[in-house]
Amino acid sequence: MSGAEKIQAKVTEITPLNELVTRFRFERIDGGQLPTFSGGAHTVVEMQDGGITRLNPYSLMSDPFDQSSYTISVRRDDEGRGGSLFMHRQVKLGDEMTISYPVNLFSLDLRARKHLFLAGGIGITPFLAQIKQLELLHGHWELHYACRNHALASYADQLTDRHPNETHLYYDDQNQQIDLENLLSGQPLGTHVYVCGPKGMIDWVRNTAAAEGWPEDCVHYEEFLAPQPGKPFEVRLAASDKVVHVGENESLLEAIEREGVDAPYLCRGGACGQCETVVLDHDGNFVHRDHWLTDEEKASGKKIMPCVSRFEGKSLVLDR
């Protein structure tokens, strides 16, 4: 079986936070305790959306040591294929859903003498759990959180109330921007920086840190890519001897699973490397969107990450 262990949960709270973001609380159906987790972990939520099973990862934002419930915050993506729309429109209080055990691809480096968190928009969620963890362990941290405006700044007021000295907010509509170069160059040795937000922000932080001589191992980032819709295409699965049609609004991985072919996965967002698949033959172009494969691997045409990447062309044969 692919993916992490499953938990049967029910939705016990739905809280709209603002125009775009809604928070969901899950508790176990059997009333038992949920596993503890480490800050930065995500859960994969299964959605039965018409004929399609969607499995979307969301960062756990609740106290990692609180075993009574998990909470996630979902930002509505009107352009996406519908996972977030399903959560916003279809999920009702009391619904039973399957979620996965926590998996952490964005964990704290517990050796750090200081943790510097940089969040963009909904990228705040993993930090909420990490901050709770560090508060318990008396860790040294600082948060810089950039949003479009105050109204869309989920949890900003709560963070400012609880951690006035550690929280720094930046609003686009007030032309505020993180002074990244000075922020990074002033950090004491042993600081680790963590960034979660849109791709542009992650690239900005990674490039600035590299230019200032920060070691790669001290720069951590997480960006779950939502699979993007694209032109339909056909794929032949050589090992299981099947031809599969990948629709406009489903990912290659979802199409493979729909046909009953088991493929490993953890994050479903192009980050963990689990679903890496060997390309046996192709005639056409890959649309690589993952963070996992190196540029050389992408150019080689020999590997694909079916969770987020697609194909445009005549024929594609995979070793699945």
């Binding site: 050796r111 003498r113 070691p215 790669e216």
Partner: peptide, 8 residues
């Protein structure tokens, strides 16, 4: 000991 990784 002051927090730089050995790889750096």
């Amino acid at each position: 000991a002051v927090g730089l990784p050995h790889t750096a």
